[in-house]
Nucleic acid binder design. Structure first.
Lengths: 155, 155
DNA sequence: ATAAAAAGTTATATTAATCTAACTTTTATA
DNA sequence: TATAAAAGTTAGATTAATATAACTTTTTAT
């Protein structure tokens, strides 16, 4: 009998394909619909590249695509997109709010790290952040001291 | 006048090529010499793939390669390899010793994250680890409590 | 209602990273 | 020291992700 750990990856898509699903989910949240052109603009690729990806993801069962129309996530696509988005949000918060990395750089690096770490590992990042807020940062001063310490550069 | 931040990336190699340099450095440390076959074995690729990569890195000025002989790092190659190895070590320690991720998974994920984060970000990870050891973990109990908290899984 | 513009699609090309298979050089050994 | 085995190299194929250019469908504006 095969067994799965709770943290098991629910997909084996490339980083690039995960990005397409993530972007579609983001567009649907922001604009109600995702269209080929919007996806292309978001990801800085050409429409034709989006088409190739979308066709693959449709075969794979992650999206549905009505020709010349909207791109939609299937149940499976939603699950994967949600997982990637959750990783992104946690990593972004960790980098920005705890490591004090500039907003834009934090976002950019979260975007890359999200494809490199498991759900379980991401969860640990989240819990460390929660733990420190709960038990370590009592006063504003505490977090300011951490910031100062992190920003010091010693070779 | 162009200016560089201390944290600027000193290379613009792909993750794959960074891995080759990292592996060569590791082999030189462990066995004194790096050979095509050893590199292939370490990275789980074929000799021919190593050759393609090595030829590129030679043109690029990162390695020297005597036909049928040893592969060596140039000064530039050493700098890049050192940078990647340092990222790896810091991330690995952070994942394993602070987030309590299993040794093997920590090593594997550090291997991926190392190509996704800047030197500056890696430095912040290192400093957070140092900071917590210095100011937060006073007793053994403190770190055990963190471990327990992190290992709890709440949906 | 129709023509021009915008959006989307398809076919084909390019690039990076890998592979297989054929070939060459080096090494080890009988 | 000749030859078989091991190691390394090269040429050409494959795959994934992208692009360009030509084409089709949809939308918009008169």
């Amino acid at each position: 009998m095969t067994r799965f750990k709770r943290s098991e990856k629910i997909n084996n898509l490339s980083a690039s394909l995960e990005d397409y699903l993530e972007t579609i989910a983001m567009l649907k949240k922001e604009k109600k619909h995702a269209r080929v052109g919007d996806i292309a603009k978001s990801l800085n690729v050409k429409n034709s590249s989006v088409n190739v990806a979308i066709n693959f993801l449709a075969k794979n069962g992650s999206v549905m695509h009505e020709r010349y129309g909207y791109v939609d996530l299937t149940h499976q696509g939603k699950k994967i997109a949600y997982e990637v988005q959750k990783k992104h949000d946690i990593l972004n918060k960790f980098l920005n709010k705890l490591l004090f990395i500039d907003t834009e750089i934090a976002a950019k690096e979260a975007c890359e790290i999200e494809h490199a770490v498991s759900v379980a590992t991401t969860h640990r990042f989240e819990r460390l952040y929660m733990f420190l807020n709960k038990y370590f940062f009592k006063k504003d001063e505490d977090i300011i001291n951490l910031k100062k310490y992190l920003e010091k550069w010693e070779e």
